[in-house]
Design a protein around this nucleic acid. Structure first.
Lengths: 104, 104
DNA sequence: TTGACATGCAACCATTTGGTTGCCTATTAT
DNA sequence: ATAATAGGCAACCAAATGGTTGCATGTCAA
């Protein structure tokens, strides 16, 4: 879980996920296109995404195809974000109450 | 948005949010209880959470009360996670198709 | 008013992070 | 067979991160 959060914490990595979301199964060099970064830097990001299970790869000859795995993202939504959404209205009304209480 | 992802990338900060989710409006010293960290380290984490707008504070005399703001978390769910959930089944079936195609 | 309590500020430190460059290996096409 | 293509590995670097210690300030209670 921590690995997923850490992997998502970098804008370059999120844009790589975006790229795969737009077109799945890209090679390393395809993913490098248009990025202001060396191929090796992209490789490092992809390794982190793979370790967080956000990207799966398949070797096909000399090419390595990268596929998005949306499951960990979904899990964060389910296990983490939903927890905080439940208390949302309650929290806001409590904050309002505290703000009003402030000058007592 | 980036600040929120970065703020959530640290397990200590997520546990501070958990603490506030369990009991909102705690002081710095309250939040320090049971943590294997100095008060100053906790302060630094709270500053990061505040800058990401995940925590709001109110001074009340010599105490500083910390309140959870669930809005940015909700936004990540809405603007980011949902995007990847939509394509989930499609992505998985495409992956399966590619895996099967592999030996052609 | 003075001591205790809650927090703030700044300097410092080790480790991690995000990136680079240079070279090596494997596969494909001519 | 050989050149071009796709990718991997390792060393190195600067900056960011997560933590510490020491001291300062503001507020409350006796």
């Amino acid at each position: 879980m921590d690995e997923v959060f850490k992997a998502l914490a970098d804008a370059s990595r999120r844009s790589l996920l975006d790229k795969l979301h737009a077109k799945n199964g890209q090679t390393l060099n395809e993913l490098c296109e248009g990025l202001a970064m060396t191929r090796q830097a992209v490789t490092k990001h992809l390794v982190i995404l793979e370790e967080a299970n956000l990207v799966t790869t398949i070797r096909h000859g000399r090419e390595k195809l990268h596929y998005l795995n949306p499951v960990p993202i979904h899990q964060i939504g389910e296990r983490w974000i939903k927890k905080f959404e439940r208390g949302k209205l309650a929290a806001l009304s409590e904050l309002k109450r505290q703000l009003e209480k402030r000058d007592e």
